[in-house]
Amino acid sequence: MSIKHFMSVWSAGLLCSAFVSCNEAGCPLNNTVVAEFNFYQMADGQLQKARLTDTLTVTAVGTDSILINRDLGVSELQIPLSYARPTDTLSFRYASNRGTVIYDTIIIQKESYQNFEAPECPTVTFHNIKAIKSTHQYIDTVQIVNPNINYNATENFKIVFYTTE
């Protein structure tokens, strides 16, 4: 084999080895994991979407974190759950423009697990909801719609408020 041929094979081989590559493991574009709550009220015997007229503040009990701060005209909420606690307690504070303040508390029982994703992507935590209960100042009932909380932003909880005049 001549030098020319030898060089041809070697250069092709080096090109080949440089070609060792793979498709990129792209991180998910929607990489936030939040629980979605939608608000409802009974009207004419049917469940209908509701919009709060009071100012709503949501805090995580046991921390100094304010998850929703004085939001007005709210009809749905997206709230992050804790990554490791088996139970999260959320405090709902309704403040009317007349100065009255009412509190409700929602307790969520869940199982959480971490998802590593690719090394280039942030680790995320997914949740599986086991149970939910609440106090009943403004809230009539709370229901689990979808117990799996992950990348798919779908309705997880239905909060039905008492009907007011």
Partner: peptide, 23 residues
């Protein structure tokens, strides 16, 4: 379910497809 390895032995970087070569 908590995560896959970055590299699969013999396959290469983990993904649905991959290019490789040997000399």
């Amino acid at each position: 379910k908590q995560g896959a390895p970055w590299y699969l032995p013999g396959f290469g970087k983990n993904g649905s497809t991959c290019f490789g070569g040997t000399f």
